[in-house]
Structure formats: C-alpha cells, structure tokens
Nucleic acid binder design. Structure first.
Lengths: 342, 342
DNA sequence: CTGAAAGCGCTAACAT
DNA sequence: ATGTTAGCGCTTTCAG
C-alpha cells in the first residue's frame, strides 16, 4: 500500500518548491526548459499523478460531468451515455452517471450530490413525472451549465437537445397512410412530457393532412411498456370497428402489440400495420421486423457533450433548443402489399 | 449565479465556529440538541450543500466508485452498471463510468484519472486484449479496493466476480446433445480471456461426457460480432459434412448465424440448432427466439458493488473468486422435434 | 526564472 | 459543549 506521491515530494527531491513543480507540469512559459524536463522526468519516474481533488478544490470545480437519466439499461440511454463518455474522454473529463428511475426524489438527491461533488456541468433527461423544475434551476443558479436532452422541460429557459418528435411521428403516420392503412391507433405517452405531446401532434397532423378522421378512442395514453402495449392492443382489437394500424410512441409497447397480434394470428403487416418509436436494438430482430423512428442516441450524447463544452467556454448564456431530425426506418411491420420472404 | 454557501457562512450567521457547524451537521454527540437543530435549520434555509471535494481532500478519498467497462451500450454492461449504480446510490456513493473500447491505452488512462480523482474503489471488466495487469496493480497498491467482474484476469491475486462460464457452456451443449444434435460447432472468443476459455472447456467437456468426437475445424475463434457469426456460419455450412448445431460464446454471433441460416432457408431448429450466450435483450425477440445462457447482469453489478462496500469496511484483503451460476434459457432455436406455432 | 505564502472548504485532534 | 488550529495537495498572486 504505497503512499501517494505529491508535488511536495518532487520539490524536495529536486531541491525546489511546489510552485515550480506545478508550473513545470503545466508547461508554464516562465519555467526553463531544463527544469521542465527534469520535473517531468522525475514525475514519471516516481509515478506521480495529480490529485485532482486538490486541484478541483482550488479551482472551485472539477473536470467531471454529471449525467442524470431515468435508467441506464435502455438502449437509447446507454447509447447516449456512451456518446457523452466518448466526448468527455477526449476532453479529459470524467462522467458521473445517475439514474432517477423516473422518481422525482431521486432526481433531486442526484442534483444535490452532483452539485456537492463540484461537477462542471450537468446533462439531464427528465423522468416521467417531473413537472417542477426548481431543483434544476439551482444548478444553473450556481453557474453550472445545464443541458437537457431527449426529455426536456417545455417552457423553461434552458438548453435543450431534442429530437423533432412531431416530425418523426408525422413521417411515421404519413407512411402508414401511404401504405393504405385507414384507422390508425396511437399509443401515446404521458403528455406532461413534451416529446410525447409532440408525437401525438405529429400523429394528429398526419391524419388531418390526409383528411382522415380523428377518433379519440383510438388514442390511448399508457406507460410505454411491453405489457401495456399488449393489453391495449387486446382491447383495441375487440372494438366493433378495430384499427388497422398502430403507431406507438414506444418500441416496447409496439413490441407488445406485435406479440399480441401474433398470438391471435392477426397478420402483420397484412391486416394490421405497426410503427414504433426509438429504434431500439431489438426492432430489427422481431418477426416481422418493426418499423420505427430512429433517434440516434449516440449522436445525441455526443452532441450534448459538445454543447456542454461550448457552454463552458462561453460566458454568455443563450437559452436555445437544438432539434435533431429523426429518421423513419421502414421495416416489414408496416409494409402492406409487399411480398417479402419469411 | 449565486455564491455557494459554506460552513463558514453558517458559522458567522450563528455566531459560532465552522467546527461546530460541521459537527452539528454530522450529528456529533458532543453537540447540544439545540445547537444541532439550529444549525440544521439554518443549513436548510440557506440551501447549504457540503462541498464534497473539500471533504474528499481532507479524507484522502471520495465517495465515488470508478467503473471501467469495454462499452456501455451493450445490454449486459448497461445492466451491470445499472446494478452498481443502484447499490452505490443506496450508500450515498457516486459512480464514474469509463469505457475502454477494448483498448489497453484507454484502460490505462482511465485508471490514472480514476486514481487522480480519488475514487474509493474501482470495478473493472477487462477489454479483449488486456494481458498486462500491472496498471491495475497500481490501484491496489494504493489501498484502493479493486474488483473485477465478468472479464477478470486469470492468475492475479484479486477479487473476481464471474459467471461459471464452464458450467453455463456445459449446460448449453448438453442440452443440444439431448435434443439430438450430433455435430455441434463452437464459435469461441479469444482464449486469453478466461471466460471464453471456460466456455470452450464446458463445450469440450459436454462433448466428451456424451462420447461425441471433438472436431477442431468446428471450433472457430472469432471477435464475437454479428458479422463474424454470419460469415463463419456461411463457411461452416459449406463443409462437406456441416454441423447440425452451433453453440456460440456470444449472442451477437449466434444472431449472425441465425440470420445466415434464415437467408439460406436452413430451418432453425429443425436442421440446425443454435444456442448463444448472455441473454441479450434481443434474444427473446428473434424468429425463432434464441436459446441462450443468462448472466443476470444487474445482479452481477449489485453484487460487485456490495463486495466493494464489504471490502472497504474490512481491513484484511483476501483474494477470492465469487462464482455465480448462470442459467440456461431454452427457447425455440434449440428445440428440435418440437411443434411450436409460428 | 523561481520562491514564499495564502487559501480553496472541510474535519478532527487538541484545547478549554 | 464548543473553540482553536492545523493541514489535506494544489495553484497562483505577489515578490524577488
């Protein structure tokens, strides 16, 4: 259990002072080449490592980014985090991850510990139920860059990086209509989250633009799980006049729908078309493969991290929303009248 | 952009000293109830938050766990991390995640920054190519608990939490044999990683115990990707005497195998059986669903974190290996002679 | 070009 | 029950 080497130790050994060591290690111009070289060599030899806790205390902040997401083990978020970590690493930053489990209290607790640990910035995707943004405001009040991605608050003056959910949903539903589906149901998420509201609006717009009627009973709010998708589809298909297509705000519930329909021998896409949302990894592996809307998680992560670094460098705060255009991915589950091998 | 409140501020306001504030906030017994209450109230009112950077500097370590994994956006690792974060959160700890991309240099760099940031412990799953463990030894030498999970070094005296890969593989291959498959190929991973070596041994043992011959050309080392699985299966099926089953050390290559066979209209499981490894989320969604071996990532994560906390509390270091028993999950891809609806 | 000294915020050993 | 003091390791202003 070796003792940690400090700049004091190096200073003593070179018969100089900590300040010189520190400066040399940072290539301070006012230190002679010779000294700089000597210091760096000794540092390497003694296996010196900065104590970044000490630096952070001095500097008032650390080279760390905090990330708060509802859960880590979801394709989309895992990709986002991976993207964030990539960019952070390139910039010599660490990433602290926190999962909120969609619970407001956990979010608040995480905010507090992140502030306590002196993070240089916080990237957040909100939980389902978060409607009070005051806890997040504390972050910005302390001058810590705060960036929302994916699930962002609607009205707050903040930096948001989101998908154009409305456009994504519009594309999806328009595609279904073009494939000849007429009675398209929508499984939507809680509308306190803008992204679900947007998806619903995209759905509505597409129907209206095509001159199709909107039926309230075909629009069902749910918790985006596979089970819910299964159960809702069961219910929908028992209507006297059941839908001939389902557009879901979540791939998971789209999968649930698919499983129910398969169980009931209702043919997808011949009898019922399905389009999900998110391009979860599994969607290209179902039988038939699920059409969906891709949100390119890794890119969102990278982009969010980049915006953070920009923000850190800049000294003016400009609230802004960066909207990335999602991509419709057409697979078999919505390709009516197409012959594809099984 | 408000200034941060410190214990000095609180002390001044209550006309006392920082030590009293500190003690009160920590429920030190030598502080009067009245004072403790007063302090806590003021702290809340002024929105005080510890500066854990300062505490960490004092204490010589922070309430942070470092985690190094090859990549975050893989079901298994995302689950492990999620499990780690759960337990860490319960204990008031933060989690810094680092991805190595299976690159040794990145691992080393992450080790250095983790040590620099004064993490209380490090949990690691090694990259493919890591054969030199010296960089990791530095962690233990500093008295920082180091725990390997999943991909652990073979000979080092360390704490390891691994699956019983041999037993898992054995179960898988035995199952294939029981289903009547006779010529079982094995797509194996690089054998410098014990877990792949173990899986191969389980495969070999199962063949031997069943009195089946071992054919070297049916054992192919690969990089565990879907593409590799696809290509290798293509090659295998062109043999004069092709295999009638495939046991892969990875679900991804098992999937590749499945896709190739489907393309070629070779029936799974009737003509060729497949069993993968890891129980990736997608395996229950393929057509047919993939049999696989479950490694319960979330539990490994939780368990690793628990072991870390034990280790931190204890003052003797006992190298040990904790072996969790994986579970064979039989799905359609290996159920020969079974009639299941499509 | 280098040194001296102060201080980031917190905690704990040592007073009182 | 509370105050005093020192110091964790680093950086940086000020001085030389």
């Amino acid at each position: 259990m070796g003792k940690r080497v400090t700049i004091q130790d190096l200073a003593k050994e070179l018969d100089t002072t900590p300040s010189t060591i520190s400066r040399a290690l940072h290539d301070h111009p006012g230190i002679s080449k010779t000294m700089t070289k000597k210091v760096k060599e000794l540092a390497k030899k003694r296996n010196y490592r900065v104590n970044s806790v000490a630096s952070s205390l001095r500097a008032g902040k650390s080279k760390t980014i905090g990330v708060i997401v509802p859960m880590i083990n979801r394709d989309f978020f895992a990709n986002v985090i991976s993207g964030i970590e990539d960019v952070a690493f390139q910039n010599g930053f660490n990433v602290i991850i926190c999962q909120s489990d969609n619970k407001v209290e956990k979010e608040i607790q995480h905010i507090n510990t992140l502030i306590s640990s002196g993070v240089a910035g916080v990237l957040v995707s909100l939980g389902f139920d978060t409607t009070d943004y005051a806890p997040f405001n504390k972050i910005s009040q302390l001058g810590i860059p705060l960036i929302f991605f994916d699930r962002a608050p609607e009205h707050e003056k903040s930096i948001k990086i989101v998908n154009n959910d409305k456009a994504g949903a519009y594309k999806a539903v328009k595609h279904l209509i073009e494939m000849g589906y007429q009675r398209i149901a929508h499984l939507c998420g809680p509308s306190n989250l803008p992204l679900y509201k947007e998806r619903k609006e995209g759905y509505l717009d597409a129907l209206r633009d095509a001159g199709l009627p909107v039926e309230e009973r075909l629009i069902i709010t749910h918790n985006l799980t596979r089970e819910a998708g299964y159960n809702i589809t069961k219910k929908l298909m028992k209507y006297k006049n059941p839908p001939d297509a389902i557009f879901s705000a979540s791939d998971y519930s789209a999968l649930g729908a698919l499983l129910y329909l398969k169980e009931e021998r209702i043919k997808v896409p011949e009898e019922v078309g399905i389009v999900g949302f998110s391009n979860e990894g599994f969607t290209k592996l179902t039988g038939p493969e699920l059409s969906t809307v891709d949100q390119h998680g890794k890119e969102i992560g990278k982009y969010s991290a980049k915006v953070f670094f920009e923000e850190m460098a800049s000294d003016v705060f400009i609230p802004r929303t960066i909207i990335l255009d999602p991509k419709l991915i057409v697979r078999r589950s919505s390709l009516r009248n197409q012959k594809l091998s099984d």
